[in-house]
């Protein structure tokens, strides 16, 4: 809470800068529109203005600045416009009982959330299993770990269209599966690394103690290694869920997607409706924030119950 005031101040500054940037970003579009509706602008003619400096246009046409903040297809929308678009495609549609309409961001967010969930589940499972194998088998450690690192240096987006083609060739309908695979690909790595660290976190003396009780391998795993890894697990889950969301959206970006927040961005681009892009971006950010917060809460509750954190 100590950080609340500074964070709000910085957010305020960002919003102010954003509003200030709208005028120079949109001035040309605004003047074109004003000219078409018969207003006097300096200089006249779109071609002439293309050779005029942005600031000269801004300060030479102060009476038309208002228009720059109200364009239908702005280069840079105002935060207010984005918020309005967001409300129009979520809350307002929900109030009209059309929450799951194809034009509603709630519907697209739901699609994205589902893929993210399956990708997260798959990635987390693979990550945890991989970590256990690495901790218990030296061969796996030596042969798998370098490739796990290399796998993350490969730009997955290059593979994304391929995964989509492959799965459709193999007769898998829709985008759900390939999206989940891409998101699992991005999500498994932080979980793997975190769990390896966590499973190895018990000290030698703690392991020796269990050995003096002649505890079995399974007992050592469930009574010491696994509980010791929980704090590491949650930290990496938070990174993993954000990565899974990025993966899903990346999977929705290549041509042909029709549903999901990524597809909204794509469609907004194709139809030249920047407001739709911005609204989808904000929705994705909100979704990311919600997912991370949810896991953060789960972490606090779990660790408190386990007596690891006050």
């Amino acid at each position: 809470m100590r950080n609340l005031v500074p964070v709000l101040a910085v957010l305020g500054a960002i919003l102010a800068l954003w509003y200030a940037a709208v005028a120079p970003m949109n001035i040309r579009g605004a003047l074109d529109q004003a000219e078409r509706s018969g207003a006097v602008v300096v200089p006249e003619g779109s071609a002439v203005r293309a050779r005029t400096g942005t600031w000269a246009l801004v300060f030479g046409n102060t009476e038309h600045l208002g228009l720059a903040y109200a364009l239908d297809r702005p280069r840079l929308p105002t935060p207010g416009q984005v918020a309005h678009e967001l409300w129009k495609t979520t809350g307002e549609m929900a109030l009209n009982g059309r929450a799951m309409s194809k034009r509603s961001l709630l519907y697209h967010g739901w699609i994205t959330l589902q893929s993210t969930f399956w990708g997260f589940l798959l990635g987390t499972t693979l990550g945890i299993l991989g970590a256990v194998a690495i901790v218990y088998s030296r061969v796996v450690d030596m042969s798998l770990m370098p490739w796990a690192i290399i796998s993350q240096t490969i730009p997955i987006v290059a593979l994304a269209p391929m995964i989509i083609v492959l799965s459709s060739q193999m007769g898998i309908e829709g985008r759900g599966v390939p999206k989940a695979i891409i998101s699992a690909y991005l999500c498994y790595f932080p979980v793997l690394v975190g769990m390896v660290k966590g499973l190895r976190s018990p000290s030698a003396s703690q392991l020796d103690l269990l050995q003096t009780y002649s505890a079995s391998g399974a007992q050592a795993f469930f009574k010491l290694r696994l509980p010791a890894s929980v704090p590491y697990l949650f930290t990496s889950l938070k990174i993993g869920v954000a990565a899974a969301l990025v993966g899903t959206i990346v999977g929705e970006l290549p041509t042909g997607a029709i549903s999901g927040l990524g597809a909204r961005i794509l469609i907004g681009d194709q139809f030249g409706t920047p407001l739709a892009i911005w609204a989808a971006l904000v929705a994705a950010a909100v979704l990311a924030g919600a997912l991370v917060t949810l896991l953060d809460l789960a972490q606090r509750v779990t660790l408190r119950r386990m007596g690891m954190q006050g």
């Binding site: 100590r2 950080n3 500074p6 964070v7 709000l8 101040a9 910085v10 957010l11 960002i14 280069r75 987006v157 990174i239 954000a242 969301l245 990025v246 959206i249 990346v250 970006l253 927040l261 990524g262 961005i265 794509l266 907004g268 681009d269 920047p274 892009i277 911005w278 989808a280 971006l281 994705a284 950010a285 990311a288 924030g289 991370v292």
Partner: peptide, 27 residues
């Protein structure tokens, strides 16, 4: 003050799917 304000925001933004801004930048 700035550090305390920007660090949480930066941490949050670093986790966002920023690739989505690609069409805007192309525009």
């Amino acid at each position: 003050f700035l550090t305390r304000g920007l660090l949480p925001i930066g941490n949050f933004v670093a986790a966002l799917p920023i690739v989505g801004i690609a069409p805007i930048m192309v525009n």
